[in-house]
Amino acid sequence: MAMTKRPARTQDVPIPIDVRARTITDIARLAGVSAGTVSRALSGSSLVKPRTSEKIRMLATAHGFSPNIAARNLRTRRTGAVGVIIPLGHEAGQHISDPFFMALLGHLADALTDRGYDLLLSRVLPSNKDWLAQFVDSGRVDGVIIIGQSDQSAVLDEVASRYLPIVVWGGHIEGQVYCSVGSDNKLGGRLATEHLINKGCRRIAFFGDAAAPEIAQRLDGCREALAEAGIDATIDYLPVHLTAENAHPAILARLSENRIVPDGIVAASDVVGMSALRALSEFGLSVPSDVRVVGYDDLSIAAQTTPPLSSIKQDLATGAAHLVDILFRRMAGEATESVVMAPSLICRSST
């Protein structure tokens, strides 16, 4: 009895080379392997033989194929994104374009991209205490980096007590629940003040709003240095905001109303330091002959002012690397300790 030849099953029919493969199944048919093998090969799995992986990657490249990231994330329960939030509870006028934010964000973006992750950026003006809980519960990201505590430390503690993959750039506070990365702000304030004292300054002012923990720590460091030097610790404190449009007129007004002008200024940021340089010039005072000024952060703009601004350096590149490394460890379920980095004085012509 003659045997009838069955038609080939659809899944066994190879795709013509001139037809573009659009799915993992298409690539699998061309490679003669299972769809699972293709998926593992394209994700870099060591379970697939090198020769097979190379064949699959070459086919994928030839057909301009890339895996469906959304489908992969659905299978792995990962979003492939990290949320980076800038809460501005006490500095509502500050913008993402602030030089400090831009510098740190650049380092974070590079570090996250190197790990194959996207950055979801959000600037938040907290109107209620649930803003962070709503964000982490939305399922939009795999972890969160907060830039600055602002006046939201209690909110950060509440969320961190139940949500592990969160890390904060900011000053370390004794007893905090959340994990943080930042420099030793009190030491930074001391370094700036001791430098001014060594330069002969005795009437030292601090410009910056201590509502934020980082700024408060820098102010504490200034006061400690003055006290240890035997100088009246009643520092001329001006709680200016960190934006130039607010800091400059506030500093100019303080210079106009004070009978005694400070001979040394510790600025809470380089932006405030630059605003002080401008205000002093407009007031007819010379830097450093009449007044010496130290900024904070040592951003690239600090070296471009007239005169170039002395500053307390925070190593933002290293800080960003710590933030990302710690976040990924916490995303993997590891509890991590906070990191406090040592700042350093960068001396330029303003002092």
Rank of each mutant, 00 (worst) to 15 (best):
H172G: 06
N198G: 15
V141N: 04
F283Y: 12
V33L: 13
L30E: 09
E54P: 02
R348I: 03
D110H: 13
W131H: 07
F206Q: 02
P99A: 08
A41H: 10
R223L: 04
H195K: 09
E174I: 13
D315N: 15
I312F: 09
L255N: 01
F135K: 14
Y117I: 06
G175H: 10
I146V: 15
L323Q: 08
I145N: 05
S281V: 06
A70D: 10
S310Y: 07
A302P: 07
I166M: 15
G295W: 03
L323H: 03
I56N: 04
Q314N: 13
W169H: 14
W169I: 05
V136M: 07
P308W: 03
E54Q: 15
A8F: 11
T336Y: 00
L219A: 00
G230T: 09
I96E: 10
V144T: 08
S39R: 09
A247Q: 09
G189F: 02
G230W: 11
Q149I: 02
V181L: 09
L309S: 05
Q149C: 10
T193G: 07
S46F: 04
E158Y: 07
G32E: 11
I96H: 03
A35L: 03
I69V: 13
S311Q: 10
L242I: 08
P249S: 07
I15A: 09
S39D: 11
I146K: 02
R40I: 09
L156K: 05
C222F: 00
F135H: 14
D157P: 11
C347D: 14
T243F: 00
A216C: 09
R115D: 13
R330N: 00
G89Y: 01
A211K: 10
D114L: 13
L255R: 04
V124C: 12
Q94C: 01
S138T: 05
M3S: 13
D220C: 11
S338Y: 04
A276E: 03
R348E: 07
P87N: 10
S344F: 06
I69E: 15
P307T: 00
G189Q: 09
S46I: 06
Q314I: 04
P99N: 03
G116M: 08
R330H: 01
